[in-house]
């Protein structure tokens, strides 16, 4: 367990992307009256944006 938790922390930006950014995007889009491109559902679009952003943050070590 003690070996797993630090590894989990190292992946946290990616997990944050799919765990938090994705549902945020999915819930904000309809409130703003926006429709995701290419026929995607808000959740799928949120996962794409959040997952990609989190992965980039994980690799680069910064969010912006």
């Amino acid at each position: 367990m003690e070996a797993v938790l630090p590894k989990l922390m190292k992946m946290m930006p990616f997990l944050f992307g799919i765990g938090f950014i994705a549902p945020c995007v999915a819930q904000i889009l309809p409130r703003l009256g926006l429709v995701p491109p290419a026929g995607m559902t808000p959740v799928a679009f949120g996962l794409a944006v959040g997952g990609a952003w989190g992965l980039i943050a994980n690799l680069r070590g910064r969010w912006l």
């Binding site: 630090p6 946290m12 997990l15 765990g19 938090f20 549902p23 999915a26 904000i28």
Partner: peptide
């Protein structure tokens, strides 16, 4: 600290995926 950070993330994720993302923000 490690446990607190993980619980914080778990709370945010659970709220967000339950439809309370803006509330969590």
């Amino acid at each position: 600290t490690l446990v607190a950070q993980l619980l914080f993330m778990a709370a945010l994720f659970a709220m967000a995926w339950s439809g309370f993302a803006l509330e969590a923000v």
